[in-house]
């Protein structure tokens, strides 16, 4: 294993990147070569470096979403060699480091593809459909100031932990991008399971399940393809078992 402390070395990469100026024009792959970049850089930092070179040559930099760069904000996400967020499990693409790849490797970077995620530019797509799914019912209706004492409802430790595990979804859209039907089932199931496992979520449980699933169809997401790729690519490792749980919920 290479290490930060020693001479961790560098590598060269061939990047095949989807370039598309705007939604109205067709896109195409463009190839770039990055020579001797530090192996301790993240893939996004390698793109930063590529962009500095593109600026110097007068070419438009590659547009990609990013923000926190520590795997929690959910901004980043694209396919690396066909895999959402790349080859490492439980990892969003900002946490993917170059030491993962062999010297001379070719990486194909491609945006999320889904009818519900219209393209914007290069690797950036519009994911506001996910916000509209939450708006359809992914909440507990409680106005500020109406809350009872937080200890008035006892919630077992394991129950709270299980609700937490489903609440960790960062809304990146990888589950949708990796599903052959472009379904948002894992995203919706995670939110229904988060609130549905807690006493606070009970009053609106049925209504929420119906409303969010109806919205999912309205946004153009497909139905669950049952191939479980969503679970495999989820940076937060949310279990696809919740999808079958969800199907019982809406009845």
């Amino acid at each position: 294993m290479t290490s930060l402390s020693g001479a961790s070395g560098s590598l060269s990469l061939n990047l095949r990147i989807w370039r598309q100026d705007n939604p109205g024009e067709p896109g195409a792959y463009r190839s770039f070569r990055l020579e001797r970049v530090g192996a301790d850089l993240s893939l996004l930092e390698a793109l930063d470096q590529l962009n500095e070179q593109l600026i110097a040559t007068g070419e438009r930099p590659v547009h990609f979403e990013h923000d926190c760069r520590e795997g929690i904000c959910g901004s980043c996400g694209f396919l690396v060699n066909g895999q959402a967020h790349g080859p490492r499990a439980a990892t969003s693409v900002c946490q993917l480091y170059l030491r993962q790849f062999a010297d001379g490797a070719t990486l194909t970077l491609e945006p999320w593809r889904s009818r519900a995620f219209p393209p914007i530019q290069d690797l950036v797509v519009e994911r506001s459909a996910l916000d509209r799914l939450i708006a359809a019912g992914g909440y507990c209706s409680v106005n500020t100031g109406q809350a009872p004492d937080g200890n008035a409802m006892l919630i077992g430790q394991e129950q709270a932990a299980s609700a937490f595990a489903t609440a960790t979804c960062i809304g990146c859209g990888a589950c949708v991008a990796s599903c052959r039907n472009a379904s948002a089932s894992l995203f919706v199931a995670a939110k229904l399971a988060h609130l549905g496992q807690l006493p606070q979520g009970q009053p609106e449980r049925r209504r929420r399940a119906r409303a969010m699933q109806q919205q999912m169809t309205a946004e153009g997401f497909g139905s669950c393809s049952s191939n479980l790729e969503c679970e495999a690519v989820c940076p937060k490792q949310i279990s696809a078992d919740w999808i079958s749980w969800m199907h019982r919920e809406a009845r």
Partner: peptide, 11 residues
């Protein structure tokens, strides 16, 4: 307030 919204605090 946060508990009522469903924030899964540790218990």
């Amino acid at each position: 307030q946060c508990v009522a919204q469903g924030v899964p605090f540790a218990r």
